[in-house]
Structure formats: structure tokens, C-alpha cells
């Protein structure tokens, strides 16, 4: 998959090799460094742990890739995830006396998360496309709103899923098939479908065209309003999916749930080679961005050379490096 995509992206953008292979090289370097520093790094337990934890950000980042490629931005996804998690817990707890512990109540929770995600995405998208407010402003606003709503719903504390329900729901995060945990499977599915639609689908082409030059897209009979709206709805839906995987992990939501997820997701997208200004995006790159960010954190935690408290600093350096590489690619023609 990776191979075909680099091959087809090349004639289109004439990307210098560094921006295509740069993130891959960085990821491989990180894996080698990690393996040398700590023998447990490549162990099954550690890798499963890292991948499962990065799945939430990863699923959101897939949606963010579409939004950014279409020339948009969404800062609200972290607090949206917290709000949806809180809402799911409230709805499931409230339905418990009626439905009891069992699959129906899980489906109710799942439906709640997906519907809430789509509605939240629709609100962002409509404000941005129909009302015509800057994406940065709209999502900055909704970011504050969702964060504050979850705090209010939890009355400043923590919303917890009923204990019996939590035990029943737990396997969705911790179990899996063939030793691969569910979050990793769902993440992989999102990536595969996302990559195919972004690079091979008519929708993906329209997303890139809208981000590259909305005027040209409009004059080419592309309904740019609908395309941009759809990217926000897709992202909202994926935030719902991520929340469905997240809630069974801790079984709770509070005002600190999902904090800074939006920035991690945006960073992963950019490190992966998608242009922040829009017009060009690749989901597989975003996956590599997510992995790079998670591995940095993991390596710092596993080793003693650099304090884990400096995690943010190292990630920051990576983000800036990625953007410098991109700019070199654009001006170096």
C-alpha cells in the first residue's frame, strides 16, 4: 500500500524524496533507538500497549487528515471526545435499570456516541461553511463549550460507568482477536478505509481539490460546501468511534479527559506530510505521525536518559522539523 501511494503521489506533487520517506525514516530510527535502549521495547506487551493507547488519537487523526486536506481545522476534538464520553456514561447509567447489563445497553452507548459525534461535527461544519466563520474560531469556541459541558455534567468531578457495566464493557478495550486488541483493529480499519477514500476515491479527490483551491473546485462543479461539511461530519463520527474505544479503558470521564488530543492529532497529521494549508493529504502518513509521537513518549518512559517530563519538548521539535521539511519541499523547486 505504502509503495503504490508513494509511486502515485510522486508524479502529482513531485515531492522530493525527503518528504515522502522522511517520516518513515524517522519512525524506523525511533524503533531502532528504542530497541537498543530497552530490550522490552519490541516486546508484545509494550507494543500492544503503545498501539492501543495511540489508537484514540489515531482514529481522530484519520478524520483530521480529511479536514486539514480540505483546508480546514478542528480544535474541538479533544473536548468533544470528553463530552461524548461523559454523555455515553450518563446515558448508559440512566438506562441500566431498564435494560440491565448486556449487549443492548452497549449498543445504546455506541449509538449515543456515534450520533453525538455526527451532530457535533455537523454543528462545527455548518457554522464554518454556511455561516462562514473561520474554522479556527468556530472550533475554538466549541472546544470551550464541550470542555465546560463535561465539567458541568460531572459536577466538577468524575463521571463513572456503573461497576457491573464497566466489567461487561471492559473487553472492548482489553480483548481482541489473534492477540490484536480491538482498538488496534478498529484503528487499522479506519486507516485502510480512510486511505483508500482519500487517495483513490472521488470524495478524496474533491477534498484535495477544495483544499488546494476552493475557487477552482467550485468552477469545476465540485460542491465545495458539501465537501467541507462532510469532512467535519466524518471527523465528528470518528471522534465518536474513538470514544467508544476509550470509555471501556477507564470507565470514566472527567474534565481532564482528552486534554490536548486535538493538538496531538493535528501534529500527527502534519508530521505525516499532509499540508497544513490543505490541498494534499495522506492517511498513511498520519499513521506514521501518530506512531512517532507515541513512540517518543514510550521511549522516554522506558529509558532514563531523558526525563519523561521532556516528552512535550521532544514532540515539539519533531513537529517543527516536519514543517521545515515541508517548506523545503515547496520552495525548493
Amino acid at each position: 500500500m505504502t509503495q503504490t501511494d508513494t509511486a502515485t503521489a510522486k508524479p502529482a506533487r513531485r515531492l522530493p524524496p525527503m518528504t515522502v520517506i522522511g517520516p518513515v525514516v524517522a519512525l524506523i530510527a525511533l524503533i531502532i533507538i528504542g530497541a537498543m535502549l530497552n530490550p522490552n521495547f519490541l516486546g508484545y506487551a509494550n507494543l500492544t500497549n503503545v498501539l492501543s493507547r495511540s489508537a484514540f488519537i489515531g482514529i481522530i487523526a484519520v478524520g483530521m487528515t480529511f479536514v486539514i486536506t480540505a483546508g480546514g481545522l478542528d480544535l474541538s476534538v479533544g473536548s468533544m471526545a470528553a463530552f461524548i464520553a461523559g454523555l455515553m456514561i450518563l446515558v448508559m447509567n440512566a438506562a441500566l435499570p431498564v435494560l440491565g447489563v448486556g449487549l443492548p445497553i452497549i449498543f445504546l452507548g455506541v449509538a449515543t456516541a456515534l450520533v453525538a459525534g455526527v451532530i457535533a461535527g455537523l454543528i462545527n461544519g455548518l457554522l464554518i461553511t454556511k455561516v462562514g466563520i473561520e474554522a479556527f474560531i468556530v472550533t475554538l469556541g466549541t472546544m470551550g463549550i464541550y470542555r465546560s459541558l463535561v465539567t458541568w455534567m460531572a459536577d466538577g468531578g468524575t463521571l463513572s460507568l456503573d461497576f457491573g457495566l464497566r466489567t461487561f464493557y471492559r473487553p472492548v478495550y482489553y480483548d481482541g482477536i489473534l492477540g490484536i486488541s480491538w482498538p488496534i483493529i478498529v484503528f487499522a480499519l479506519c486507516v485502510i478505509v480512510g486511505e483508500i477514500f482519500l487517495s483513490r476515491g472521488v470524495f478524496g479527490r474533491h477534498v484535495a481539490a477544495t483544499g488546494a483551491n476552493a475557487e477552482v473546485a467550485h468552477y469545476s462543479s465540485v460542491n465545495t460546501t458539501r465537501v467541507r461539511l462532510a469532512t467535519y461530519v466524518l471527523l465528528g463520527l470518528l471522534v465518536g468511534v474513538a470514544t467508544i474505544m476509550y470509555v471501556p479503558r477507564l470507565g470514566s470521564a472527567s474534565q481532564t479527559t482528552g486534554i490536548l488530543w486535538e493538538l496531538e492529532a493535528i501534529a500527527a497529521v502534519i508530521i505525516g506530510g499532509t499540508y497544513l494549508k490543505g490541498g494534499f493529504g495522506r492517511v498513511w502518513g498520519t499513521v506514521i505521525g501518530v506512531l512517532i509521537l507515541s513512540l517518543i513518549e514510550n521511549i522516554l518512559n522506558l529509558t532514563d536518559y531523558v526525563s519523561p517530563y521532556l516528552n512535550g519538548a521532544v514532540q515539539g521539535v519533531m513537529i517543527i522539523l516536519a514543517v521545515i521539511l515541508q517548506r523545503g519541499a515547496k520552495t525548493g523547486k
Binding site: P11, A12, R13, R205, A208, A209, A212, N213, E215, V216, A217, H218, Y219, S220, S221, V222, G279, F280
Partner: peptide
């Protein structure tokens, strides 16, 4: 500014509409 995606290839431009 309205007709062609200048940063894209001919292939993507020719089929866009």
C-alpha cells in the same frame, strides 16, 4: 485561480470536472 489546480498534475486536473 479558477480553472486549474496549479500544484497538481495534468491527470488530476483533466478529470476533476
Amino acid at each position: 485561480t479558477r480553472g486549474l489546480l496549479l500544484d497538481k498534475s495534468m491527470r488530476e486536473n483533466v478529470t476533476l470536472q
